[in-house]
Design a protein around this nucleic acid. Structure first.
Lengths: 227, 227
DNA sequence: AATAAATGATAGTATTCCTATCTTTGTTGA
DNA sequence: TCAACAAAGATAGGAATACTATCATTTATT
């Protein structure tokens, strides 16, 4: 497996392609570390510039603002998820097994293959859990959605919806179940760690991802196996 | 029904009780309008002060920062929700009907009783949908959680979990299902309006709340009626 | 070797997010 | 009724954020 994954990260997300230069890659790599460390609110281009020994102005040449940078990171994540999903589904024809692969993909601690990438997928996972909804929960969402910047997320959602549909063609809400599954898995992991009373893993008997996995599996199959 | 609802809005959320003064009520009332209008990111105390003909410094005497103000608003909402829930559950003993009341409460466009309150519940509803998760998706969540500032949300969640448990005592995840239900209902409404491809209400054939209600009901009963 | 592109260095502006201080107004209760 | 106290207004200001602009320098391209 090569590093070369041809992701269609929408060009409207960035000003200058960060994949095209060393500095660009540094920006993305260190932004993941810094957003993880500080949280998105406290993260600034100035701090990032300091971290990589560059300047604020230079980072602004790559991304309009920090929101776009987050969007870029998440786009990358969504594309990678879809890629991994397709890769793992190869040769799996059993429809229940296909659904299990979806569940495993969404709940596993880190989505494998971390060796050959130049940034930390575990940190990325944490960012997805804690920050991803901030990318669409904004006033300008409809405006920026016109530029197709959420296409990668929609594609992933559509792919999962397809597998749901294969499993139970009479189920009416494959897309909504797909997004609910994705988002609820993030939430439950977050709650397990930070607000455990909102879950049934109160005293953290098992790990956040184990608990979430069990809950999500139970929910998914009950919804889909019900007549 | 009187205005007097004795809510236990945690004192650690505010510096000076906004319920105690006219100005305090103005702050809360207009902050709801302004957060709705601008979105939480663009909302500032300066703009709010201008709106109510007061000053920034004065608002800081009530709330430490805008995050606390949002927390206060949501606390009020969660308390109100729990109050409404208990009120509606009176005299309802049929366990399926009790669950229907939960669903209706969470998905109805505005939670009734808007006349006697001095702020707009419809706007509040929009804020809950678009901004509520920002209140906990922060780096300091564990820190501020120690002050019990999320108690109202946990109580609401626990109450719904109780009803879920009554309906199906063998179901293992009443709390997680409760939060998933609440959060997923917000999400689906948001997606219906802003990113409809993430739902199965693509061309908005029915209203966001009608669609969400149908989806949530289907999900809830399938999860709980499954053997 | 000439030229263009990318980056660095620096500066500056408007706004945000506060904190401090001083004055005025309104309330209470001795 | 007057003292004193709390709330609010007015104003100032500082550190940080979120940019934009300009010009010099380095690096790659042809």
């Amino acid at each position: 497996m090569e590093y070369q994954l041809s992701f269609s990260v929408n060009k409207k997300i960035y000003l200058r392609d960060p994949e095209g230069t060393e500095l660009g890659k540094e920006i993305v790599k260190h932004s993941i570390e810094l957003i993880y460390k500080l949280g998105f609110e406290q993260f600034t281009f100035k701090k990032l510039a300091l971290e990589i020994g560059s300047t604020e102005a230079t980072i602004y040449r790559y991304f309009e603002n920090k929101h776009r940078l987050l969007l870029y990171i998440l786009n990358w994540y969504w594309c990678y998820m879809e890629y991994l999903l397709m890769y793992r589904l190869q040769n799996i024809s059993d429809i229940k097994a296909r659904l299990e692969i979806v569940l495993d993909l969404l709940t596993s601690e880190l989505p494998e293959g971390s060796g050959h990438l130049d940034f930390n997928l575990q940190l990325l996972n944490h960012i997805v859990i804690a920050e991803s909804s901030k990318v669409y929960l904004i006033k300008e969402v409809s405006e920026i959605n016109k530029n197709e910047v959420f296409k990668a997320y929609k594609d992933l959602c559509a792919k999962i919806a397809e597998i749901i549909h294969e499993f139970n063609p009479s189920y009416q809400y494959p897309h909504s179940l797909s997004t609910t599954l994705i988002e609820c898995i993030h939430q439950q992991q977050f709650f397990c760690i930070n607000l455990p009373r909102l879950t049934d893993n109160l005293h953290q008997r098992i790990s956040a991802s184990k608990f979430t996995s069990a809950f999500a599996r139970d929910l998914l199959f009950k919804v889909l196996q019900n007549p």
